[in-house]
Design a protein around this nucleic acid. Structure first.
Lengths: 123, 123
DNA sequence: AAAAGTGTATTAGTTGACTAATACGGTTTA
DNA sequence: TAAACCGTATTAGTCAACTAATACACTTTT
């Protein structure tokens, strides 16, 4: 079962995108694998304190991307291949790294200072 | 005059927050200094292709924080002190670094891999 | 077989972000 | 002084995000 233990709500970004990204980052990390069972819409919405429709929107988008398979009445499961995983990594990790570098550079941080910052906040 | 040349619109985050953060990051970088003139609401809104009210909202929030002084009919200027700058750094750089580290760790990236990624995307 | 849980769908409503148009009075500039 | 620009404000409206309540048919479990 996919875990949402370390899920942190940031505001300013739509919740359904945060849920979607949480799962994709889990795929990149390897903690979310092919065939893994997803928490039900109702269960996850209760856990996160959001509306079931919000969770449904995340799941629906993942299904449209072919990353999730769900049969009416049954559980929903991850449907991953190596190519899909590679694509997700290219998409999410690329965007995250680029974004981090861009904001750091925008604040006048040098590459060395960036390393120091990463180290500082890593633990 | 504060520059918005390297301003990039990310979706998923409100534009007025992006504008506000762009200025705060400029303050941290030192490219935005005390007394610096801000582009007028109308000018910036035309430049970014957004509504004047959206820019006004960003400026209003900055003014409420005491970072901007604006007199009706006249230009708006930055009002910075060393303490304010230090506070902004603590606030924005802290959040950005923490956020970057959190998402990277969530993807199973090690500290060494993070350094490699930062290096890769730095140029 | 019955109960519980599941995915899916619909309808209605609220809130916030953003657009659009316009107005007023002050300041700057030519 | 007159034109141009400025900050400020108001009103109305759209659209997306999210909530709320409910319903239906299917699957799993007991």
């Amino acid at each position: 079962m996919i875990s949402f233990d370390n899920f942190i709500m940031e505001d300013s970004s739509p919740i359904y995108l945060q849920i979607l990204l949480h799962i994709k980052r889990g795929v990149i990390a390897g903690s979310v694998k092919d065939g893994d069972e997803l928490p039900s819409r109702r269960m996850l919405s209760a856990l996160l304190g959001v509306n079931p429709n919000t969770v449904q929107k995340s799941y629906k988008m993942l299904e449209d991307e072919g990353l999730i398979v769900s049969h009416s009445g049954a559980k929903s499961n991850m449907a991953l291949t190596q190519e899909k995983i590679k694509k997700i990594r290219q998409e999410v990790l690329h965007a995250d790294a680029e974004n981090a570098v861009r904001t750091l550079k925008q604040m006048g941080v040098t590459k060395e200072e960036a390393f120091a910052l990463i180290s500082e906040y890593w633990d």
